[in-house]
Amino acid sequence: MQVTRYSEAQSYEAAEHYDMRCLRLQGKEATATDTIWIGLSHLLPGGHTSLKDAPVEKIYIVVAGSVTIETPNGEVTLGCLDSCRLAPGEARALFNRTNSPATVLLAMPV
Rank of each mutant, 00 (worst) to 15 (best):
E16Y: 10
G74F: 02
P88A: 10
V62E: 12
S66I: 04
P101A: 00
E57D: 14
I61M: 15
L105D: 04
Y18N: 02
K28I: 11
A102F: 00
S50H: 10
P55K: 14
S50V: 11
V56M: 15
G89K: 13
I69E: 03
T31D: 10
R92W: 04
T4S: 12
G79F: 06
N99R: 01
D82A: 12
W37N: 14
G89V: 11
G74V: 00
C22M: 14
V110R: 05
E13Y: 06
N96K: 01
I38D: 11
H48T: 02
R97E: 02
A91I: 03
G39D: 13
P45V: 05
A102W: 02
E13P: 05
E75K: 08
R24N: 05
P45Q: 02
G47K: 05
Y12N: 07
Y60A: 07
V62L: 12
D34T: 10
P101S: 00
T31P: 09
V110I: 02
I59N: 14
S41T: 13
L86D: 08
T31L: 07
E70N: 04
A15C: 10
E75P: 03
A9N: 02
S7C: 13
A91W: 02
N96E: 01
P109D: 01
D82S: 12
H42M: 10
